[in-house]
Design a protein around this nucleic acid. Structure first.
Lengths: 106, 106
DNA sequence: CAAACTTATGAACATTTGTTCATGCATACA
DNA sequence: TGTATGCATGAACAAATGTTCATAAGTTTG
């Protein structure tokens, strides 16, 4: 046991993994964004106004959340006519959710 | 917020679970606190100065992190002489970490 | 083209979170 | 006692995050 740059304490989850998961959960750890992820996990792709109506979140605020999540690589978007459709891009988001869903204890 | 009290989209992880996990990860999603959790997952109980030395974090700042985590129910502390020993309290923290560690994809 | 619709954007502001510094408080020990 | 050690605390500040509002920009349709 040399002291310093230990890559991971022997607990199964490396610092790297932990930080990746933390990033994902941290950037989605907000009621609105959680709901967005839920919707997009169940719906594959939705327009902004779809989401806005379903979640009852005002357009501008929602847009900020969406573009933020897109910037961080979690969502993707494509235009179709005057609508813009968002979808889950980062596969790990679903992975993490499924992984956690499989844990029965919570 | 009337219409959207849907308990969980059918994706396995309820909003409630998701928010609990998010809470855990969000409150630990910080380099120093991640390291703290790692240490305490591997060591059962450590004094503040132990942690301070190992992580090379200044006393006061560390103390703020520790008391914050304690306030949120994640850590516990007991005094022994002039030292105060911190330990992981919230079992779910370890659970979540182990759960994520079991997921191979990341 | 103009009007209507959908989404993005940016500025101002509010709130939360992280950091530092100085100081206080408790315990041990000479 | 009083002095040193270990930790907490609170104020001041910094930075990140969330929210609102007004407005712009891209698309369709009449």
């Amino acid at each position: 046991m040399t002291a310093t740059t230990a890559p991971s304490v022997d607990m199964g989850l490396s610092v790297e993994k932990m930080e990746k998961v933390a990033f994902i959960l941290k950037t989605t750890a907000h009621p609105t964004r959680i709901a967005i992820v839920q919707l997009l996990a169940a719906n594959d792709s939705l327009s902004v106004s779809d989401i806005s109506e379903r979640l009852n979140v005002e357009q501008s605020l929602l847009s900020h959340h969406l573009t933020g999540m897109k910037l961080k690589g979690i969502l993707s978007s494509t235009r179709d006519g005057k609508n813009i459709y968002y979808a889950l891009k980062m596969r790990e988001v679903i992975d993490v959710i499924q992984c956690l869903a499989a844990c029965t204890f919570l």
